[in-house]
């Protein structure tokens, strides 16, 4: 399956990557070659094969319901680009 310019722009938007038209052109080439390689899968008969999401056939462990995490806001916010009064700041969100 080929990837087109519009697909790249669409993926870039979904992934919130600010890629312009010129960049997109370059990615069309790279991504096409990757997808060409991936196309080797399309001819494989996988009828009745269960998808494998995890390499081990393990099941989810469950955690006891205990509130044990201390308040570490100051530490966590040391790496934050913009905070005020304990809030993380972003450009105004219109709802």
């Amino acid at each position: 399956m080929a990837i087109e310019h519009a697909d790249v722009l669409r993926a870039a938007h979904l992934a919130r990557l600010g890629i312009d038209n010129t960049d997109a052109e370059r990615y069309v080439g790279d991504l096409s070659r990757i997808l060409d390689m991936v196309d080797a899968l399309s001819g494989i008969d996988t009828d009745g094969v269960k998808p494998l999401a995890h390499p081990l056939d393990a099941t989810q462990p469950l955690r006891a319901d205990e509130a044990i995490e201390p308040n570490r806001r100051d530490t966590y916010q040391e790496s934050a680009p913009a905070v005020a009064d304990g809030y993380y700041l972003v450009p105004r969100v219109v709802e």
């Binding site: 955690r63 205990e66 509130a67 044990i68 995490e69 308040n71 570490r72 806001r73 966590y76 916010q77 009064d85 304990g86 809030y87 993380y88």
Partner: peptide, 17 residues
């Protein structure tokens, strides 16, 4: 996560890593 779900705490004090 093990962070508390109590309502009305100071902002981001109950948000763990």
């Amino acid at each position: 996560s093990g962070a508390s779900t109590a309502y009305g705490a100071e902002p981001n004090t109950q948000a763990c890593a």
